[in-house]
Amino acid sequence: MKFPALKTYTVAYLLFLYAPILLLPIFAFNDSKIIAFPLQGFTTGWFRMMWADDALFKALRNSLIVGISTSIMATTLGIFAARASTRYAFPGKAAGLGLIMLPMVLPEMIMSMSMLVVFLAIGIPLNLFTIILGHVLVCTPFAVAILTSAFQSLDKSLEEAAQDLGEGPFSTFWRVILPLVMPGIISSALITFTISLDEFIIAFFLGGTETTLSVYIFGQFRFPARVPSIMALGTILVCLSIALLTTAEYFRRRGIARTGAKDTGGFL
């Protein structure tokens, strides 16, 4: 059923979705302290101002530590959950998976506050480690979702063939299953890294005095003079996430092509 006006509407909607991102580079290169029209001429000064701030690089380093650790841990936990959910039947499966997936829909404020209460009560000091603990909790459901679809498209007969040819269960997993789901694993690692990099609430409340990139950005909002350099930083971040996502999408499609399944669309 075709409605011709729909295409116009969809393009307008996409413009609405992209408006903030498209305005970012315009004002990042605009030679004015105020984010407003008319434009005042071209400058790269805001990028230099952004680059000169040491606090940014410390925050970036922290974000990389948190993001890489989270990505590895969440993807590893995700492999366990996805393999269990696609291959085995066991008691309490729905409830267990439900609890693992729950952080996807729970407000982050409630999760971070409940964790904060426990950390304070036990006396765990707040630092990058506590941020990682929170981020792994939030990222694991996304890893499970991506990896479940990777494990689902596996042909069970490949596994049986490997076992018939004398491989044990562990070497079957290592030599047959793992290479087949590798694109899913890479895609999961990239997505969880991106989520961790972007996450703010948990990093803000569980980080103590440590700042990640998002906490740094939030702090900069208070200073009107820093706004143009935040536009510059935003421009760079947008380019980086698009590059990361395109890579993740490439691996996801290659994974689907490798297992011979039909492409059903995005990773959500």
């Binding site: 995700g78 959950a81 085995y88 039947a89 609890l99 792994v136 909790l137």
Partner: peptide
């Protein structure tokens, strides 16, 4: 099969119990 499934799911499940429940 049930036992293997439970063993497999235990790491993420224990994590969710400790950090969420």
């Amino acid at each position: 099969e049930g036992a293997s499934g439970l063993t497999l799911i235990s790491p993420p499940l224990i994590y969710a119990v400790l950090m969420l429940a």
